[in-house]
Amino acid sequence: MNEESAPGTRRPGGRTARTRAAVRDAVLTGLSEHGYPGLTVEYVAEHSGVHKTTLYRRWGDIEGLVADALDLAGEDSWLPPDTGTLEGDLCALAQEVVQSFADREVGASGSAIIAAAFHSERAAGALRAYYAERFGRCEIIVERAAERGELPSTPEAAVDAGALVRAAAAPVFFRLFITREPVDTTLAVQSAAATVAAARAGAFTVGARKTPAP
């Protein structure tokens, strides 16, 4: 399968990489300004400097452009926090979410991408893959905590690392996109503390969760 038929399946450099970056930036700007329903290939062509014929050939349509923008966003070198404690790491992680959406430019494009996922199944799939990869990087937070003795590390009491790190960020996303409440450092601290307390109570222990009796 070649690069043109499957954008994002290879990681070329040079001119191709610059083109992808320019297209990504135009897509994110367009989503922020007009939302997914108002984003057009013509807009992306005008703002990226890439001819629309090339856009159609390499990305197919708007869905392909949005999906590749997310794919490219997941290729960075970001690493999760390493503060020395589980609660500190989770607090820093939640705080990063708070800060990213507090930033006008970053928050607008991030919100627009999430909104696009409600209009396009392909965009939704790309968004799921992006966050799965992001939270996958964060699982080392739980591994380090287990090595320090902050969490169980035996096979009989293994912790679901993915569920745990998601729980720390979930309250922030809930306020941002469901209740539309303000988010701040206090929320990040509360989210981390609640997640650690739940973890110590066994809420994220694999095999320990049971359906409550009626």
Results as ranks from 00 to 15, higher is better:
14 G>E: 04
111 S>K: 14
125 G>I: 02
37 P>W: 12
80 P>I: 09
33 E>Q: 10
119 H>R: 07
42 E>R: 09
155 P>I: 00
165 V>W: 11
74 G>F: 12
207 G>R: 03
44 V>H: 06
20 R>W: 06
185 T>Q: 12
102 A>C: 08
58 R>F: 00
65 L>C: 10
32 S>F: 01
138 C>K: 02
42 E>T: 15
76 D>S: 11
86 L>G: 14
176 L>M: 06
188 A>P: 13
134 R>E: 12
53 T>E: 12
66 V>Q: 09
14 G>N: 05
158 A>R: 00
45 A>F: 01
176 L>W: 08
105 E>A: 09
97 V>C: 12
214 P>K: 07
29 T>Y: 02
57 R>N: 10
108 A>F: 08
183 V>F: 08
140 I>G: 08
113 I>P: 09
19 T>D: 02
44 V>S: 11
213 A>H: 09
30 G>M: 07
124 A>I: 01
104 R>T: 04
211 T>P: 02
168 A>T: 07
38 G>S: 03
10 R>W: 09
194 A>K: 04
22 A>L: 10
82 D>K: 04
17 A>D: 08
214 P>R: 05
20 R>D: 14
171 P>K: 03
200 R>F: 09
81 P>K: 04
8 G>S: 03
119 H>S: 06
124 A>E: 06
11 R>K: 14
153 S>L: 00
93 L>Y: 15
144 R>Y: 05
82 D>G: 01
74 G>M: 13
9 T>P: 03
10 R>N: 02
52 K>N: 00
97 V>W: 09
99 Q>L: 14
124 A>K: 07
205 T>D: 00
193 A>Q: 13
65 L>G: 10
195 T>Y: 06
25 D>S: 14
92 A>W: 11
79 L>A: 10
71 D>H: 15
9 T>C: 06
80 P>V: 09
61 D>R: 05
43 Y>K: 01
138 C>H: 05
99 Q>S: 14
21 A>N: 08
26 A>I: 04
194 A>P: 01
1 M>L: 13
36 Y>M: 05
105 E>I: 03
23 V>F: 06
42 E>H: 12
169 A>V: 13
61 D>Q: 05
151 L>Y: 03
184 D>G: 09
71 D>F: 09
62 I>A: 05
80 P>R: 04
17 A>T: 01
78 W>M: 05
59 W>A: 02
11 R>N: 15
84 G>K: 13
53 T>D: 13
36 Y>I: 02
90 L>C: 11
59 W>N: 02
72 L>I: 01
140 I>A: 14
123 A>N: 13
197 A>F: 01
11 R>P: 12
177 F>Y: 14
190 Q>L: 14
115 A>F: 06
47 H>Q: 08
